[in-house]
Write a protein that binds this DNA or RNA. Sequence first.
DNA 1: CACATGTTTGAACCGTCAGTCAAGTGCGCG
DNA 2: CGCGCACTTGACTGACGGTTCAAACATGTG
Lengths: 211, 211
Amino acid sequence: MTSGRQKPSKDRHTEILDAAAKVITDRGLAETRISDIAERAGVSPGLILYYFESKDRLLSDALTHVNDRYYLQMSRELRRIESAREQLVRLIDLSVPGPLPEFDRLEEWALWIEVWVRALRDPEMAKEREVLDRRWRDAIGDIISHGQQTGEFPATGDANELALRLSCMMDGLAIQVIMNDSAVPPERMKRTCMEVAANEIGFALEPAETA
Amino acid sequence: MTSGRQKPSKDRHTEILDAAAKVITDRGLAETRISDIAERAGVSPGLILYYFESKDRLLSDALTHVNDRYYLQMSRELRRIESAREQLVRLIDLSVPGPLPEFDRLEEWALWIEVWVRALRDPEMAKEREVLDRRWRDAIGDIISHGQQTGEFPATGDANELALRLSCMMDGLAIQVIMNDSAVPPERMKRTCMEVAANEIGFALEPAETA
DNA sequence: CACATGTTTGAACCGTCAGTCAAGTGCGCG
DNA sequence: CGCGCACTTGACTGACGGTTCAAACATGTG
């Protein structure tokens, strides 16, 4: 039922999802054609519809698939860090779209906007989005409450609420950055994130930086 | 060249823009057809292309047109308020999508997301977006620095930076609200906005409310 | 009343895709 | 060796929708 057959370097299903995500990234969801995806995946157009019941379904799946992957990648990376404060700093770093090539957050954020648009009309996607977003917010919340328990962060304030504030702030800033707003370069997003986090959660920016 | 001819209740050009905005709102940018707009405006499809050189151009114009109008409406409303603190509170109130019928912010925010998607690929739209966003951020900045001068807000912190923080926070929260995220109902957005504003800018939530 | 000018119509045109299908291809198993 | 099955192809089609256009239509002018 699920075993390799011919030359499935990974799995056709996944290959197509990846190809779709790439096409969406550089053509936009609205401009993505089945033939583009086929070309990118190096297969014929017909095959796409052999693996996915419709274009719409494929596109939705592709969007959640990459977001899912990014989350796992990020969370694996964070789990290797001890200090809650360091985790938070790293999370912010990795979330700033742009210069950091380790994780390509630029791509990720652009897709995220496409998710929003689609979720406005597609209930399926709306449900998926809420799950993905909640998971993300919870991850931040966990870091915060962990830091509050170890005493790294002064234990005032609901971790949940603080997580909401931070994640929304990051969403809003990331939008400006990927829009290439001249007033909000990546460095500014990072700085502002750090300062707001410091204000709200209560941690020192750097040893010997409190301004 | 620009005068009324037959029965221009306002102006065909504007009528079509309004019709387009309505259609975009309830069908989504991607699903909007010229014939939809024509139907909504009560004219024939051909006429749409008589007033606008292409569908794409019309859609872009419609998006900026409504955003423009909302800004003017809002800023007129705020100008009638004296206290900077009251201005800020009112601005937050009016920005929360949902229950408030006076300004339909729900529609406004949904269109705003469409602007983002389009701006990712269309340089024209990208430029427009930056202008609109800057104007908005400046409006907030003006309120803040006005409040700092009158002493309503403790005069620490760059008004510009504070405005960025507040506007991004509002963007991020508004997204959650219009997505119908069960964790972020309109009231929560409002509360969180107020608390963050209070923290960052430094004003009392209510006489006798400081928690 | 004619004519010019600026609007408006609705049908025809035409390219573009999503989705279908009948025909291949190659692999494993008997 | 040859059957069968899973996979793959690429041509086809049918619908859809943006754009064009020639013909009406209204309005103001002489």
